[in-house]
Design a protein around this nucleic acid. Structure first.
Length: 700
RNA sequence: GCCCCUGUGGCGUAAUUGGUAGCCGCAACGGACUUAAAAUCCGUUGGCCGCGAGGCCGUGCCGGUUCGAGUCCGGCCGGGGGCACCA
């Protein structure tokens, strides 16, 4: 039951289940789907490499490695027993369903790149010569460019590849072992540093290029990763930059097998040609364009049973266990019913598994979770068989909770199920999710995966958890740099609340700039919003804090005020929908300015609408004014103001007169003036005639 | 190295998506009120030339498309973020 590393591609694949709706799924006849869930072990245990620090006795995250090494600690890569979640089974659906979401394009692009789907072919290379044993070995590679097969002049396998030990010849053994040891000491970050020189070592073995029949040397190099593809590549130095660099460093042959169309290729090869083109020196596919060449060679490989079409993903299965005290414990016990210990899920009745009270949650030092040091907790009994059992001592990562909390919020008091069908159906999906862009490929991908699993289990009815998403921009310090304690540029909102009130702070925060943009805080700018709100207040509240509604009139508003009013209602309504709060505030300021210009006093109807419009921004102010104007119900129970499109239209229009694209004059004319009248007025304009007199008008 | 976003007055920003660049604010300057200050109110405020009418220049830089470019296209420079030897 422990899967070896690198076997993430089980026959089960959620791809085929993409097109089912929740109702279709509910039908038990949906066999494909049921098979998928039955066959695909979505949670499994594997030996996975981690960064192990013996001195600290703990596992480190990638980003912590260099930090601890600088402090003098050693960090080595070591395989450890870990729970994995098979997110790769959902790769295609996670990719495919992005199209149904209203998310920032850049975030979806990041997820697409993270999933990293690429189409190509798997090709089998027979190890042909130099091998120490009479056994026959096949090295399978993945390539996106099967059309360059004739140009494969050597192979490279990852240092962790299982065949390394088997194919290395006696005389190369020492060099190979030294190289592998060298690589093991390198951190991931070091290993992928682009600027460093290519390193590698020859195994002594040769494989047969299935297309040319020629023997090609098999090398080991750390630029090939065990975690992607098959952990082995066919190297085509003529058409891949990394292979080219490597071939140059080790004097391996470079052959050109693709050319830009129409170019005769006899010039010396000075760099890899990675574009598409016409196949040359490629036997039966010579002369074909890349797309046709791919097609043809894959058909041939499939016929010869040497290879086949394949799709690979950059996405890896999710390492889901941590050796920490803090985290959700796994509902798993290990029991031995006579044939060795195996993991077993606890029944619902045994849930929840509760963490024990402990004195210390320090790392155990052995790499096991601190829970492993508490025998009273670890040792238990299998409730079904009564046999002695051992609890899983790893705990879940932080991502576990954030992957489904939104569902629990819908029905928090429910102690029988995750969420009731009724509540789930009513609320889901999350209409608008606001969160930072830093979660683009972690939380936001993990929770999509969990949600899809829950969909497959019939627990949720939507395929996606978050329909619309916006990343709020962070407010930077006054110096334009991210606020941080160490930089001393943190602004404390309490200070501004006590000085100007929460309404002012809220409204100013909305006014600062676009919702999704980073923008610097400006302590001085808040006075503008403070003045604006005070002016609204003072229209009916005197210095003595007594309501004086005498400035409100029942007179019909002037034409121009009415127009501004309806324009403002429309703008604020639309802007709130689109989360353009900054321009909504600006529009209300314009209305306020227009109200103050009104000679006959402030029409009560206009004033009440302004208060309603401002109420989502400055709720305390709006409610207080609403009550003081004699309303007994809350302003938030009143209806949102409606606008009349007809009343937003200006009766005069400003026509801009341009000559050769340059603005020369403007005309204020009644709306609807006839074209020829306009043209006549335009030509009569003194400023315009200065530029057109004596010239021929080509186009009006 | 690759990908994505971004660059507009002294500052935060706006611009009907190709048609008046700078709305709304901040700051600054001038004025009113005041014994004075704060608060409040009125005015000016992209740069240059001009008494004025007005003119020229101007949206990071260089080019292009267009009658017309902040907006579209190509190249460069700066800032932010993401991924990273992904075959």
């Amino acid at each position: 039951w422990i899967e070896s590393n690198g076997t993430q591609n089980l026959p089960c694949d959620a791809r085929k289940t993409c097109d089912y709706t929740a109702d279709e799924w509910k039908q038990a006849t949906n066999k494909e789907h049921a098979d998928f869930l039955a066959n695909c072990r979505l949670a499994y245990i594997a030996e996975a490499p981690v960064n192990w620090c013996p001195e600290l006795g703990t596992v480190l995250a990638n980003e912590e490695v260099s930090e601890q090494e600088e402090k003098g600690f050693t960090v080595v890569r070591r395989n450890m027993r870990q729970w994995m979640l098979r997110i790769t089974a959902y790769a295609d659906r996670l990719l495919h369903d992005l199209a149904t979401l209203e998310w920032p394009e850049s975030t979806m692009e990041m997820q697409r790149n993270w999933i990293g789907r690429s189409e190509g072919a798997e090709i089998d290379f027979r190890v042909a010569m130099g091998i120490p044993s009479p056994e026959e070995y096949i090295i399978r590679v993945f390539t996106t460019r099967p059309d360059t097969l004739f140009g494969a002049t050597y192979m490279v396998i990852a240092p962790e590849h299982p065949l390394v030990a088997k194919i290395t010849t006696e005389e190369r053994k020492e060099s190979v072992e030294n190289y592998i040891e060298e690589v093991r000491r390198k951190s991931d970050l070091e290993r992928v540093d682009l600027s460093r020189e290519k390193t590698g070592v020859f195994t002594g073995a040769y494989a047969k290029n299935p297309a040319t029949g020629q023997p090609i040397p098999i090398w080991i190099a750390d630029y090939v990763l065990m975690t992607y593809g098959t952990g082995a590549i066919m190297a085509v130095p003529g058409h891949d930059e990394r292979d080219f660099e490597f071939a140059q460093a080790f004097g391996l042959p470079i052959v050109r097998v693709v050319q830009a169309s129409g170019v005769e290729g006899s010039e010396p090869i000075v760099k890899a040609y990675t574009e598409e083109g016409i196949a040359v020196n490629s036997g039966f596919i010579s002369g074909l364009y890349t797309s046709e060449a791919k097609q043809k060679i894959v058909e041939w490989l499939e016929m010869q049973k040497l290879g086949h079409r394949a799709i690979k993903y950059k996405l890896r299965d999710w390492l889901f266990s941590r050796q920490r005290f803090w985290g959700e414990p796994f509902p798993i016990i290990f029991v031995d019913e006579g044939e060795g210990e195996y993991p077993k899920a606890l029944s619902d009745k045994m849930l929840p598994v509760v963490l024990p009270e402990v004195e210390s949650y320090k790392p155990s030092g052995t790499g096991e979770s601190p829970l492993a040091t508490i025998p009273e907790w670890v040792n238990t009994t299998d409730p079904e068989t009564g046999l002695p059992a051992r609890r899983e001592t790893n705990t879940m990562p932080q991502w576990a909770g954030s992957s489904w909390y939104y569902l629990r919020y819908l029905d928090p008091a429910n102690d029988r199920e995750l969420v009731s069908n009724e509540d789930e159906k009513y609320w889901m999906p999350v209409d608008l999710y606001i969160g930072g862009a830093e979660h683009a490929v972690t939380h936001l991908l993990y929770s999509r995966f969990w949600h899809k699993v829950l969909f497959d289990l019939g627990i949720v009815s939507t395929k996606e958890p978050f329909q619309r998403m916006i990343h709020q921009g962070i407010v930077l310090g006054e110096n334009g740099v991210k606020m941080s304690k160490s930089l001393g540029n943190v602004v404390n909102p309490d200070e501004f609340i006590s000085k100007f009130g929460a309404d002012t702070l809220r409204t100013y925060y909305m006014f600062l700039g676009p919702f999704d943009a980073m923008k610097p805080w400006d302590s001085k700018g808040i006075t503008g919003v403070y003045r604006f709100l005070n002016r609204i207040w003072r229209i009916v509240i005197g210095e003595d804090n007594v309501t004086d509604a005498s400035r409100l009139t029942d007179i019909v508003p002037s034409k121009s005020l009415e127009r501004t009013l309806h324009q403002t209602i429309r703008k604020v309504t639309e802007d709130i929908d689109a989360l353009r709060f900054n321009t909504a505030v600006s529009a209300m300021m314009i209305l306020q300015n227009a109200i103050e210009d009104e000679q006959e006093g402030v029409p009560r109807a206009v004033y009440e609408i302004l208060i309603k419009l401002i109420s989502p921004f400055a709720p305390h102010l709006a409610e207080e004014l609403w009550q003081r104007l004699g309303n007994h119900d809350s302003i938030f129970k009143s209806s949102w103001p409606q606008y009349d499109d007809a009343k937003t239209i200006e009766d005069t229009v400003t026509i801009i007169l341009q000559v050769n694209g340059k603005m020369r004059d403007k005309l204020d004319v009644p709306r609807g003036m006839a074209q020829q009248d306009l043209e006549r007025f335009a030509c009569e304009s003194e400023k315009v005639s200065r530029y057109i007199d004596g010239k021929q008008i080509r186009k009006v």
